[in-house]
């Protein structure tokens, strides 16, 4: 039986899919997942889910986002690679510094 494994790096973060394990039941699945997916990377929590319990819907079955043209959502005409004014650059630097001091960064 295949169990999909989701790993959370730190408390409050998302559990992100990281692979799967073969195991006969939940208890063994948790144990194997701990070794295979929790031993080498920082891990706070692991979920194991029977693969058969996962519902899947893919792009062949449904038009995600509808079928009309919605390319305007991507706003490709905004330029983000312009050179900022000196005071903007200074301000960004100050904010980064402040974050560092608070221990956020």
């Amino acid at each position: 039986m295949i169990w999909e494994v989701f790993r959370q790096e730190e408390q409050g973060g998302y559990h992100t899919h990281c692979g799967n394990v073969h195991a006969p039941d939940r208890e063994m699945a948790k144990q194997f997942a701990a070794i295979q997916h929790g031993r080498r990377k920082p891990t706070n929590s692991i979920w194991v889910v029977p693969k058969s319990e996962i519902g899947e819907l893919d792009a062949d079955e449904i038009a995600f986002g509808g079928s009309t043209d919605k390319s305007y959502r991507w706003a490709p005409t905004y330029k983000s690679d312009v050179e900022h004014a000196a005071e903007v650059i200074d301000s960004e630097g100050q904010q980064a510094e402040a974050e560092k001091q608070r221990g956020d960064a």
């Binding site: 073969h22 144990q31 194997f32 070794i35």
Partner: peptide
């Protein structure tokens, strides 16, 4: 017997 048990014992 399986990849999982192999890794567990190596561990």
């Amino acid at each position: 017997p399986t990849l999982e048990s192999d890794l567990a014992l190596s561990n």
